[in-house]
């Protein structure tokens, strides 16, 4: 398909039909010859104009920007830094800020790949389970059980998107990202 010889109208037609009128998209090795033909031929200029019109039509279909919700979901699921006091690791990149306090850092150490709310939610759920078991044996008061249950439910709601995101990240593409 590539043409190392002189540019013909037929080849220019194929080139414009494939890549459009923007010469930035033309194969580098054929740009100069295409320019020369367009400068010398009325028919070549007509073909170029047709390609420009189709380009203009295609550009009339814009796409929307990513939603703020998508950005925030992804930020919530981003990797978290292991705290220096637990890993002994030194930051290699200059100017990269370290965020979060010691409590957040400890939570990140327990759960480095998701929101630090995840271990908190898991802990709350464990408490609910433990209290529910305790209640069944008559050890824990019901009022305490209800109070913790509400807390756990709210935590589960707030981390729902993040848990879905983590689950999605675990599906497939383990060995080769692109397969």
């Amino acid at each position: 398909m590539m043409n190392a010889g002189p540019m013909t109208l037929e080849r220019l037609d194929s080139l414009l039909a494939a890549y459009g009128a923007d010469e930035a998209g033309w194969p580098a090795g054929e740009r100069q010859a295409a320019h020369e033909l367009i400068a010398a031929s009325d028919e070549a200029r007509r073909l170029l104009e047709e390609a420009r019109e189709l380009d203009a039509l295609l550009n009339a279909a814009p796409v929307e920007k990513p939603s703020a919700e998508l950005v925030e979901r992804l930020m919530a699921a981003r990797p978290r830094e292991l705290p220096r006091e637990l890993t002994g690791a030194r930051r290699a990149s200059g100017g990269m800020r370290k965020k979060g306090g010691s409590l957040r850092g400890f939570a990140a150490a327990l759960w480095p790949y998701g929101s630090s709310a995840f271990p908190a939610g898991a802990l709350a759920a464990s408490l609910v389970l433990g209290i529910a078991l305790g209640t069944s044996t008559g050890i824990s008061p019901i009022a305490t059980n209800n109070g913790v249950a509400i807390t756990a439910t709210e935590t589960a709601d707030s981390t729902d998107d993040q848990l879905i995101a983590i689950a999605l990240a675990d599906s497939g593409y383990i060995e080769e990202w692109t397969q």
Binding site: P66, L82, S93, M96
Partner: peptide, 22 residues
């Protein structure tokens, strides 16, 4: 930097590429 958990790097990478992927 993203691998090290850098928040600013995550935002910058999305700023550059998320719109194109969408």
């Amino acid at each position: 930097a993203v691998a090290k958990g850098d928040e600013d790097a995550c935002r910058e990478l999305m700023k550059r590429h998320l719109g194109r992927v969408v």
